[in-house]
Nucleic acid binder design. Structure first.
Lengths: 254, 254
DNA sequence: CGCAGATTTGAAAATCGTCAAAAACCGTGG
DNA sequence: CCACGGTTTTTGACGATTTTCAAATCTGCG
């Protein structure tokens, strides 16, 4: 164990994250730091907690019989990894850190407590879970039905949206936290295909590359090419949601 | 509109479904019947409700720019379709009935009510959402990293588990609610490939086919071939969960 | 500078898709 | 019971995309 960073920075603070942290602190649950490329949880474990990412990146993945790997989800700060295992007998996927990171374990048993004392938190978790589902569906659509070239473009646009927190058509630089083998494992290609496609996109002027940084040059063109739609939930949308509640009588209109 | 069946049969009744129905009945929300192959919701709509399946099947799907389709999820009776759109600005996928079905709309605005008056229901929804996530992850793993033959086997085993409600290694007959084009859209193949693989599996004695019915002959062999693990949540696991809550002090042990 | 890992490149092979035609299936109506 | 029309499934030839394999090159870092 190494020391925690003195200050954990979080740009886009979720409204209820602070509340969750406060409760956990009362129970003496501490954030845990991990080094890069360390398994945080392994497929087949008994589910104990989910993990609120405080800083860094984590990905969930599954390994097949023949050793192939599918990366299922890239978790960012503010995300809750392992939510899918709530209520399961066995953990369905492994989780690994991408770079150094700090995570706060939220034991599943806490959900019962939240349920009676802080229903807002459960509602928040439900919304987070729904967002993850949407992203998974997007990934499945890309992997199942796009050719290699479009999958790579999809990946770039998706990372752009998730990392920057919004969609723009302006040029932007993103840092891709994966190497090319990992990219392949995420979108169902080999590292060789990923390399070829990235080079091709670079040759054609869609992107420029420097190490793991990618400059998106023709975002609008790429979005048009694969019909990319923004995911439609930015941080803070929970607040909007709360406002919507006021039109409760809408229920009657169904 | 045609008449509702007099009795809606449900074999595996979820513990909290009755409670949800009771609340909705008080709000005069009625189950809606749909004919076969009808769109219940369309991508881009404003999210209004989720849909509790009372009988029949529904699938969620997305359509790409070039007209290709990815089927994202097969919803069974007891499932809640559209949960992924909770909190989103726009609905992320379309939903279509597979055969006649009856569906109870649950307006998203109801979640606020549940949150304050029936936190158990929100917790239940959270668990349902988690289960859907697990299934999506399984699908993504199959589509992203398995060859065609293994994908078809995966599909058969998955349907077997979901339709029968449990995993066995004994032979069993299942009725596949999809045609081969739809199967292809679910696992990322063409109808032609699906046909070839099904014929091949039949020739090799793994399955026997009669119309849309499939007899699984060598379940254990097929499970071994693709390392199929059961999903690990049967109906009623919510009860187990409640019991787990008693070991609340486990929280301290993290 | 040298090493280890990551990326690029090219040729050959395998898988899967496309296309088109034939066959099978299914419900309907005579 | 059989004929009919529409849909679904099967089949085979061919082509395109992606993988595999292997070697070369590049990069970051001590």
């Amino acid at each position: 164990m190494f020391r925690l960073p003195d200050i954990i920075r979080r740009d886009r603070t979720e409204p209820l994250v602070a509340e969750i942290c406060a409760v956990l602190r009362k129970w003496n649950i501490e954030p845990i730091p991990f080094r890069s490329q360390v398994d945080i949880q392994h497929e087949g474990d008994r589910p104990r907690s989910m993990y609120l990412i405080r800083s860094g990146w984590i990905y969930s993945y599954a390994v097949l019989a023949d050793g192939q790997r599918q990366i299922l989800f890239l978790h960012q700060p503010g995300d809750i990894a392992g939510l899918a295992d709530f209520g399961a007998e066995r953990v369905s996927c492994s989780m690994r850190s991408l770079g150094e990171c700090v995570v706060l374990p939220i034991p599943f048993t806490a959900i019962a407590t939240f349920s009676s004392t802080a229903p807002d938190i459960i509602t928040y978790l439900l919304q987070k879970s729904a967002q993850m589902q949407s992203i998974l569906m997007r990934t499945l659509t890309a992997v199942g039905r796009m050719e290699a070239r479009h999958r790579v473009i999809w990946l770039i646009l998706m990372l752009h949206e998730r990392i920057s927190g919004s969609v723009t058509t302006a040029s932007a630089v993103i840092e891709i936290p994966f190497n090319q083998s990992e990219i392949g494992d995420l979108i169902g290609l080999t590292n060789v295909s990923v390399s070829k496609m990235l080079c091709q996109l670079s040759d054609e002027g869609f992107i420029e590359r420097k190490g793991s940084k990618v400059l998106l040059r023709r975002v609008a063109d790429m979005q048009a090419m694969i019909n990319y739609e923004p995911m439609g939930f930015s941080e803070g949308s929970y607040l909007n949601l709360k406002e919507d509640y006021r039109e409760r009588d809408a229920v009657k209109r169904i």
